[in-house]
Design a protein around this nucleic acid. Sequence first.
DNA 1: TTGTAAGCGTTATCAT
DNA 2: ATGATAACGCTTACAA
Lengths: 350, 350
Amino acid sequence: MARITERSQRGGHSGVSIEDVAAAAGVSTATVSRAVRGLPRVSPATREKILEVAGALGYVASSSASGLATGRTKTIGVLAPFVSRWFFSKAIEGADRELHARQYNLSLFNLGGHGSNRERLFSKTMVYKQIDALLVLCMALTPDELDHLQKIDIPLIVVGGHVEECAYVGIDDYAASSVAVRHLIDLGHRDIALLHGDDETDLNFDVPRVRILAFTDVMAAEGLPMRPEWDEWGDFTVRSGQEAFRRLWASPAPKPTAIFCASDEMAMGVIFEAARAGVRVPEDLSVVGIDDHDFADAMGLTTVRQRPDEQAELATKMLLDELNGVAGAVRSAVAPHQLIVRRTTAPPPS
Amino acid sequence: MARITERSQRGGHSGVSIEDVAAAAGVSTATVSRAVRGLPRVSPATREKILEVAGALGYVASSSASGLATGRTKTIGVLAPFVSRWFFSKAIEGADRELHARQYNLSLFNLGGHGSNRERLFSKTMVYKQIDALLVLCMALTPDELDHLQKIDIPLIVVGGHVEECAYVGIDDYAASSVAVRHLIDLGHRDIALLHGDDETDLNFDVPRVRILAFTDVMAAEGLPMRPEWDEWGDFTVRSGQEAFRRLWASPAPKPTAIFCASDEMAMGVIFEAARAGVRVPEDLSVVGIDDHDFADAMGLTTVRQRPDEQAELATKMLLDELNGVAGAVRSAVAPHQLIVRRTTAPPPS
DNA sequence: TTGTAAGCGTTATCAT
DNA sequence: ATGATAACGCTTACAA
């Protein structure tokens, strides 16, 4: 009773502590600490006994206490602009896989959708001293956010968009886009529209621009025309793909026979809207995307596959290795991409 | 120099501590603590000075230290079977919204996709003493997992599937399914197929069963036939919807004029495959789903809307309120649903 | 192999 | 309003 009172005096803590285990096992807390962490310098006999007692008591070390003692929290942060978009949700799963396997926790920081959409507040305070490393999943960071990031002196790596001065894991966007456009050209298309994802305000997000560049380079190299009316913009969502298609088809200009979309979700929007407008894919219009979204196979969408989960997994591995003393483990790496030809691309109507 | 050596002696901690701030501001750590946390009993003048010094020094309290002192981590855990499926990713966003607003951290525990798919290891150790409360986003828990859950004596609430003895926030699945089926019947359909999501092994997941029950009840009440060949099974994914459609249309049995799907993703699979098979939706086949997935609008899918983000947001709010002393804040609540009629349902072919 | 004890950075009690 | 100071539970030299 006195004991209980003593314990509940402050904070109302609960649970069994290392001291309880030590007492029950008749050893010191130091030995318990070594034993439960699988450290050497504990005799097999004592270890077994301690583990048994600990198990019986349901002992679990307090992460706060060990965090305070070691200076490491055993959790890494994942910063994402969205969680419900394909790329990010897959990346989160990939990061989690690696973290889980290595007994680390994943702390999720979502930049998007807070309050009225742009009230995204990412301050150093959020992550500082709470995580050992940070995985940045990003398409666009404000200069302010970028600034905060640089100030945190923990291992950091980014997946999903280049950030100045940071190690980056991702596909070669230029090559991936090129192969998609070439596929269209190889099929015989000459009148190809571009649905890119650059809104020209996200200064720290160059993925869309690289994809645009690849498109224009390939088109120019082949001497193909690039009409301004065929240069459409979207924000990587299905809806924006729909809208782009509508604008394209509403215009009095001649219609392209193919459209290169900077993401599968936009490509899907185009396809949905084309169906609605009675435009047949691929007979009247070929469409190719980038990503290999979960739904791409079901829709028969031709695309360039990338695996955000594997990218994030690799990036996470680097972070963890770095934390475990492998200096230079965190470095840029380019992930593979692959053209997947399905049923939304075909030769142009003759 | 002596100071630096002193600091880096153990663990290699970095950053400025409360003591540094106290020293720089010429006050005690106790006062700094009060000041930075916005507690009373600090004169405006000292508070201002402390805040200024703290800001200049870039002071951020160590979460480990305060966690140890208070017994609370200021982070809540979110347990999810998947993160890249619509329901869960939306729910996570909703939870994050509330947590973010209340300065809590979100620790994500993903059950799915570890190693060879079923090596999902959810032990008490994972979450114990690391979080103040747990939000369970689940469709199916093994008895073992369930057991672990019960043992954790922290506030807990579930969204996305009932769990015995736990407070639950979610829609009325029976009513939601009923309204979908009734919609089909009101349109004049009599030959309605069912695409449910029960694999009969997930014993702790009754959502699919409730939806099946609603279907059979409504059909029976209307005296409508329910052919066993029209009873199809899926696992809530697009792919399983495709497969179900293929089976349905491959069978020699007569075809239904409508199909009620227990989820939008399955409904989409049906629609994609129907298009491939030349079956027109809704002229030849009406399809209705449940969820109002992000793509539902673009596809014109008739469905019953639910908002997992709002459900999770509410559940999270309850958790936080409970932690803040509002006894009984965590309790079951039923979330709204709404029939959204779009373009995949129409009267049956005459 | 095991134990002792000094931190780790906060918070909270109790004085002042 | 402010300051000492004792926890909080664990890790880790260092001693035994």
